[in-house]
Design a protein around this nucleic acid. Structure first.
Lengths: 94, 94
DNA sequence: TATTTTGGTTTATTTTATAAACTACTTTAT
DNA sequence: ATAAAGTAGTTTATAAAATAAACCAAAATA
């Protein structure tokens, strides 16, 4: 029987964000927006969900006078991502 | 930039169905229902969507007196699945 | 022969994703 | 100096998707 895929990660945008964070120490809102080709609104909502779940941390600061939102994946997030990938492999391996 | 994941395949249940069909010549409704641990209603709806998209064919017949729904993946479905998997690899590789 | 089970479909509800509108501030052009 | 446009987001509304609930017809079981 196929196992369930963590619904928090099985979303194109949230998975994209996590994927980027998995290989980047930290990433800024604008960078994530560009790389995932998402709208600011959608990204904002999805980052909140990941943060709510404890998969990432969000830090708001300023870059000179502009607001700066910086995200990092947490240990919990890394674990969830790895589990998700393992589960997914059952779906996509031939 | 991350590419978009075929939304028709990026659904746990539809992906599960496709995954099973990719390695099974054909599969019956009841088998798919068990393997994916889905409800009949949800499965029925999702099979229709895959069929609408031309990713699978659905054949309705009888097994003695009981209705029997048999599904097969099409060439188009195989191609779509393979493309999906390739795109997905960019998301889940470290 | 009433009751439950099988194999589904259809419709309604909930959840999720996306888009649109808005805020607050900054930079650029006039 | 000030209007217009751009940046970096958030909030709210809408559309789409997934799921659950209700239903149907026939068959098997008690």
């Amino acid at each position: 029987m196929l196992k369930e895929l963590d619904p928090l990660l099985h979303s194109q945008l949230r998975l994209g964000v996590m994927s980027l964070l998995m290989s980047a120490e930290s990433a800024e809102f604008v960078y994530l927006k560009e790389k995932t080709n998402s709208t600011a609104g959608n990204l904002s909502v999805q980052l909140d969900k990941l943060s709510e779940a404890g998969y990432i941390t969000i830090e708001k600061s300023f870059n000179g006078k502009k607001p700066l939102t910086t995200c990092k994946v947490t240990k919990k997030g890394i674990k969830a991502f790895e589990e998700y990938v393992n589960t997914l492999r059952d779906y996509i391996k031939k």
